[in-house]
Amino acid sequence: MRKAASWAILLLGMAYFILPLIGMVEFSLSMKRGEYSFEAYRVVLADPRFRETFMYSVVMALLTIAFGVFLVVPTAFWVRLKMPWIRPYIEFVTLLPLVIPAIVIVFGYIRLYNTSSWLPLTGSLTGTNALLLFGYMTLSLPYMYRAIDTGLRTIDVATLTEAAQSLGAGWVTILAKVILPNVLVAVLSGAFVTFAIVMGEFTLAALLNRPAFGPYLQLMGANRAYEPFALSTIAFVITWACMGLLNLVTRFSKFDKAPR
């Protein structure tokens, strides 16, 4: 009886998540009357704005990941190694983007970096792109920092660092050859979450008026019937592909079984 109840709850839960997805995919395939087809996908993929916004967001996501790793790995490493007492404060700061809405952040940026400010980043495309990049880095900070900090927790950072130092390694070598490879799975997990966030982000890109995938999704949703569902399915597949890649990387990591 108890087993049957467990199964019922599980199936109910699965139905709660899966039925809307089935509905979304089914609707995205129903553009032609009376038959299932990929017409909506064809229309979306043929739209130059799709390719433009998609590529823009992919590039921004990769840059966000690169700069995020460059910022967070050394910070988390240094905090763990030399300033463990500051960890609670750093954690608090990294969690702030979860409680401060993106709209507050972007209005702050516009107020601080508008064309009449001392650093007029919004006055040029490069500057606005950089501002958007910083915004994405801020939004992904809670996930990136937590993932990397958890990765660092699984290795003996202090002793590995000292071992490398005793062998003549400087800080850059230690970070690049010892620390980063040993937290690579954690870095990738943060990177994939960052990728998913950037691909779907709307507020920052829309208010900074940049051609990103999120605003394009919204635009299509407001003006078309079937195409937004095809786009959502594509976005969903990308997210799951990221998760699958993460799983693969974790599984095939040659040294992940090392005793810590």
């Binding site: 290795i155 003996d156 002793t159 590995l160 000292e162 071992a163 490398a164 130092q165 005793s166 062998l167 003549g168 390694a169 400087g170 050859k177 010892v178 490879p181 040993n182 690579l184 040294f255 090392a258 810590r260």
Partner: peptide, 29 residues
């Protein structure tokens, strides 16, 4: 600094680099 002293050290917890093979560990320095 420790990396300027040319002093070899062996630790209680081995401290081998988990991402490197035995040969790469030995050749690290």
């Amino acid at each position: 600094r420790p990396n300027q002293r040319n002093i070899g050290m062996v630790f209680q917890s081995y401290a081998l680099f988990p991402n490197l093979t035995v040969a790469q560990n030995v050749g690290f320095g």
